[in-house]
């Protein structure tokens, strides 16, 4: 049992770390900034989900692919596809935001509250 859990987390660690390492290679070689890196990995999630491959990867990597921003892209597409099946073409517009509403709302809400309370800290070396 303990070994099983350990292996499970090892899988998550390896897959998640691997994705982040890929991003780091992109940063090192192309001097890309964080917004571009995030967009690229988000679109990677979108493409994988659109071709129905994301679930297979997620079954193996679990949080290792769900927590990186690709998980966000996949949720968007998953929401859209489900909604298209129910509401036809309107679903393409309604489904995406519905499925990521928790994430976006949380980011906006916490950022708003924290920004009211905290100011940027002076940087020391």
């Amino acid at each position: 049992m303990a070994l099983e859990i350990f292996l499970r987390y090892l899988q998550v660690f390896a897959v998640g770390g691997g994705i982040c390492m890929l991003g780091q290679i992109l940063i090192n070689t192309t001097k890309m900034t964080s917004a571009r890196i995030l967009v690229i990995f988000l679109l990677l999630g979108v493409v994988l989900e659109a071709f129905g491959l994301f679930d297979a990867v997620a079954d193996f990597g679990m949080a290792g692919v769900k927590i990186p921003i690709c998980g966000f892209g996949s949720s968007l597409v998953k929401g859209v596809i489900t909604a298209v099946m129910e509401d036809d073409i309107m679903g393409a517009f309604a489904g995406g935001m519905k499925s990521v509403s928790v994430g976006i709302t949380a980011a906006i809400f916490f950022s708003f509250i924290y920004a009211l309370i905290f100011s940027p800290h002076s940087k020391k070396v």
Partner: peptide, 10 residues
């Protein structure tokens, strides 16, 4: 990249 790509980076 290790802290940019996870959702915490977002």
């Amino acid at each position: 990249g290790g802290s940019i790509i996870p959702i915490t980076g977002f």
